[in-house]
């Protein structure tokens, strides 16, 4: 019979080991990609068109493409998401409608990314006849990140003290004025955090853009919202599975650029959150 103290020691060590097994791969992934990717990064790599069937040159159109897609997704999802969060937090507390909306959001968050791709293909590319285009891809990505923005904005709104609303209303403000002047300003950090997380998510996703916008090889910049573009995650997929004999530097370099963008977004979100948590005045 082992003593309870010893059992505890063993158990805690195993738990720690398991935790490290979950977290360490993050470090390993970062290490591998940074180590092999850095030699591939140069000013030319970031600012030039790909050449000779993507085996040389840069990744500029993929960077620009991802930028446009993310921008479009946020322009669509941010207002819709924040307004939806306002509805849930300020207008429909605990009604059956808000329960239904909550279920819809949970489901939207759980829909497989490739199914969003199918949806985008059927609705935006086919039904609305946008074709495979920045517009169709952005809208698809926007719908995908909508739950992220709604959920975090709602949490941010809910965490604003109820008293702020009562004070504002009791001073003869309308409900909308109360939301605008006494609630929303104090929820901004949380909304910002959610938006940045959504940006990171949209920048990294491949499946939703496969059939809605992503171009396999298009060494020029887009002219309008109805153009196809290359995008970083799809470009990495293409480089690593579809194009044989690519210099590893180009693959790793692309992975590094993509990972940097995505992780930077998450890092910024984490920093904003902890900064405002420390500064909270109520």
């Amino acid at each position: 019979m082992i003593s309870p103290r010893l059992t505890q020691k063993i158990a805690f060590s195993l738990l720690l080991l398991a935790t490290l097994m979950v977290i360490l791969p993050v470090a390993v992934v970062l290490f591998i990609i940074v180590k092999n990717g850095l030699p591939g990064i140069s000013w030319e790599f970031l600012t030039q068109m790909p050449k000779s069937g993507m085996r040389a040159g840069g990744i500029l159109p993929a960077i620009i493409g991802t930028f446009y897609l993310v921008l479009g997704a946020v322009v669509f999802a941010l207002p819709l998401g924040v307004l939806a969060a306002i509805y849930l937090s300020e207008y429909s507390k605990d009604s059956w409608m808000s329960r239904l909306v909550r279920l819809a959001i949970i489901n939207l968050a759980g829909v497989p990314s490739v199914v969003f791709g199918l949806f985008g293909l059927a609705l935006f590319v086919g039904f609305f006849k946008f074709g495979a285009s920045i517009l169709a891809g952005s809208l698809t990505l926007g719908i995908m990140i909508l739950p992220v923005i709604i959920t975090s904005s709602r949490e941010a709104l809910d965490s604003v003290p109820k008293s702020f609303r009562e004070v504002s209303l009791s001073l003869g403000s309308t409900k909308l004025q109360t939301i605008k002047y006494a609630v929303l300003p104090h929820a901004l950090p949380g909304i910002l955090t959610g938006t940045i997380l959504g940006i990171g998510r949209a920048a990294g996703e491949t499946a939703p853009i496969l059939f809605t916008v992503a171009a396999f090889y298009l060494p020029r910049l887009p002219h309008s919202a109805f153009d196809q573009v290359m995008a970083l995650p799809y470009h990495l997929y293409v480089l690593s599975t579809q194009v044989p004999n690519v210099d590893q530097k180009i693959r790793y370099g692309t992975a590094l650029v993509l990972l940097t963008i995505v992780l930077l977004m998450n890092l910024i979100a984490i920093m904003i959150r902890s900064y405002f948590r420390g500064k909270k005045k109520w």
């Binding site: 008293s163 702020f164 009562e166 004070v167 504002s168 009791s170 001073l171 006494a182 104090h186 005045k281």
Partner: peptide, 12 residues
């Protein structure tokens, strides 16, 4: 009809 609450509640 204005109201003063139990706890002082200035807005930030």
């Amino acid at each position: 009809v204005g109201i003063i609450f139990a706890l002082p509640m200035p807005l930030p």
